[in-house]
């Protein structure tokens, strides 16, 4: 056992120094399995290309400028949609969370519209706004906004009443209480909402690009299907996973570490 423990201990120390290694290592067996299966040609190459071919297609699409352009289009669409979703969702969540009247009036509507689902809006949105940025933004906003609103409401309502009372007794105005107590108190839940919202939004975007797109990663994959290029479909799937991984570990996780985890409101 001792040599194994030594290797494990060395690995723990290594990942403590370079945390990114810990996020790459679990992919090694998966990657190896993919490589072996394709090298043995268990399935025909046209159905399941190997890592080498996907890499070649990545290089050539990047060289031609198609991939950077599509990638940019997808990211800009997600960013615009997410920004609107957040800008509308957080204030709405705070209003519903703080006012029982607003809660009574809007909560059933929220649950109703949440159930309709983003893609179900596409047919009517295409008729209203055509095949463009407006339609795709609308779908993403629609997807992002529900998790953001629902989690913001949960966050606002989870703040102990004594926290409001403490601030008021220390001389805070209602507006200051909103800024000093309600927003930071709800922030851990808001981040959870963002994480869910962006995750759903990213998937909705790909679906929207497949259906109404003329560019973007979703369009790349759908276009590849028409051409029968499994290589490009696989490439698109891998890019989706990597991009989400980057958004999560470079943007969302650091926010969580600096807020809820630091304050002891969320477990590490």
């Amino acid at each position: 056992m001792t040599p194994l423990l030594k290797i494990w201990s060395a690995y723990v120390r290594l990942t403590a120094r370079w945390p990114s290694i810990a996020s790459i290592v679990p992919f090694i067996p998966l990657f190896a399995a993919w490589w072996i299966v394709t090298a043995l040609e268990i399935f025909p190459r046209v159905f399941l290309p190997g890592p080498g071919e996907v890499w070649q297609s990545f290089v050539s699409l990047t060289w031609k400028g198609i991939l950077p352009e599509y990638l940019q289009d997808s990211i800009v669409r997600l960013a615009v949609g997410a920004a609107w979703g957040i800008a509308l969702g957080i204030p709405l969540g705070i209003v519903i969370g703080m006012s029982s009247r607003a809660h009574a009036a809007l909560w059933p509507l929220l649950l109703f519209f949440q159930a309709i689902g983003d893609i179900a809006w596409l047919p009517i949105l295409v008729i209203w706004f055509g095949y463009g940025l407006v339609t795709m933004t609308a779908v993403i906003v629609y997807t992002v906004i529900f998790p953001v609103v629902l989690n913001t409401v949960l966050g606002v309502r989870s703040i102990p009443v004594n926290m409001h009372r403490a601030a008021l007794s220390l001389g805070a105005s209602r507006a200051r209480v909103l800024w000093e107590v309600v927003l930071p108190g709800a922030l851990p839940n808001i981040v959870t909402g963002l994480r869910n919202g962006l995750g759903y939004g990213w998937r909705a975007l790909i679906a929207a690009e497949i259906i109404v797109g003329t560019s973007g990663i979703g369009f790349l994959m759908f276009d590849a299907r028409r051409a029968g290029s499994v290589v490009e479909i696989l490439l698109g799937m891998i890019i989706l996973g990597i991009l989400w991984y980057m958004v999560d570990s470079w943007i969302l996780a650091p926010i969580e570490r600096a807020t809820g985890q630091r304050w002891g409101l969320v477990g590490r």
Binding site: N162, G171, P184, L265
Partner: peptide, 19 residues
């Protein structure tokens, strides 16, 4: 008339701002 800074309060649950 309502809460105000002339009356400071110490709570059983502390009610410190965790952030």
């Amino acid at each position: 008339n309502g809460p105000g800074r002339d009356r400071g309060v110490v709570f059983q649950s502390f009610a410190l701002f965790p952030w």
